[in-house]
Simulated assay, not measured.
Amino acid sequence: MPRSKRDKKISLTKTSKKGVALKQRIIDDIRSCVEKFENIYVFTFTNIRNNTFKEIRDSWKPSRFFFGKNRVIGVGLGRTVEEEVEDGLHKVSKCLKGERALLFTDCTKEEVLDWFKNHKYDEFARAGNIAPKSVVLEEGPLEQFSHAMEPYLRKLGLPTKLDKGVVTLIKSYEVCAEGCVLTSEQAKILELLDIRMATFQMCLKAHWSKKNGFEKL
């Protein structure tokens, strides 16, 4: 009886014992998912936030997502024809570059394509993002903030003071200009103001199935 591809041993060198255990667990999880699910999708993502992604993970159960540690995930799938645990999976490994991740699922291709096409999430921008619009605060009270926040707002750069216990801008202030690269202070001010300038979006790049093999999307 021929030996299963999934029985291949892997050498994890230059790694601490704790690191080896973690990497081996990821590899084992990947191989378990290969055996369990019919389809694997490779997708890119931008402006990811942990809370949003946790909600997505929960909504897709029992499907499984893997992101980060592309090299380790690639080892789990097999990076070459000789190493791959199912035919064609080395092609999936080659797609794992930069901010890319995997979805293991039994959902139909039509269901997956439709969901990825129609789901985007407004998120808070981070330092380094480009501001899509200008935001200017007018002089006057900022009643959404408690008096205890005033020193912190001033530290972020807002020209504030306490006026009878109310946080107040002493002059108009441009938080950001359209097209500017946001600083960490600007990003934090926008978050405190509940102004979301980024979009968390995922874009499908490739698909592998046990029935049809690998294809680019």
Rank of each mutant, 00 (worst) to 15 (best):
L217Y: 13
L12Y: 10
T108N: 01
V135Y: 02
R64S: 03
L137D: 00
G74F: 04
A101T: 10
G165Y: 14
H90F: 09
H119P: 00
R31A: 06
E35R: 08
L193K: 05
L103K: 05
T199G: 05
K188W: 05
E139Q: 13
Y152C: 00
V175G: 14
K109V: 03
K161D: 10
K36W: 00
F66G: 02
N51R: 04
F200G: 09
K216F: 09
K9C: 05
A131K: 07
R196H: 08
D194Y: 11
T183Y: 10
T15R: 13
T108V: 02
I56C: 06
K8V: 06
E83D: 11
T52H: 08
V34Y: 11
V75I: 15
V42H: 06
S209N: 14
L103Q: 04
R57I: 11
K61P: 00
N39G: 02
V42S: 00
A127R: 07
E111Y: 01
K164F: 12
E82T: 05
V92K: 08
R57N: 08
E86A: 15
T52I: 13
M197E: 15
E174T: 15
T199Q: 11
V34Q: 11
G76T: 00
K94P: 01
T108S: 12
F65Y: 12
I26G: 03
S93K: 03
R3V: 09
F116M: 00
T183A: 13
V20G: 07
E111N: 03
D7L: 11
L137V: 10
V20R: 13
K171T: 12
R57K: 13
H119S: 00
L102F: 12
E82Y: 07
W115Y: 09
L153E: 04
L89D: 07
G74H: 07
I189G: 08
M197H: 13
T80S: 14
K210D: 02
K210A: 05
G179E: 14
L204R: 04
E111F: 02
S209L: 12
K18E: 14
C180G: 12
G140M: 04
E138P: 01
L156I: 10
S59Y: 08
K205I: 09
V75T: 14
A148Q: 12
R154D: 11
R79M: 14
G157N: 07
S4E: 13
E139L: 01
L193V: 06
C176E: 09
K94E: 14
E38K: 06
F53N: 07
L153A: 06
D106E: 02
R25W: 08
P62S: 02
R154Q: 11
L204E: 04
E178I: 15
T199I: 15
I130Q: 10
C95G: 01
E99Q: 10
L89K: 08
I130T: 15
K97D: 07
F37L: 09
L142S: 08
Q186A: 14
D7C: 07
C95R: 11
K14N: 13
S59R: 13
L190F: 11
E138I: 01
V167T: 15
D163K: 15
E38G: 03
E143Y: 11
V20F: 15
F104S: 05
T46W: 06
E35Q: 11
S209Y: 07
I73G: 01
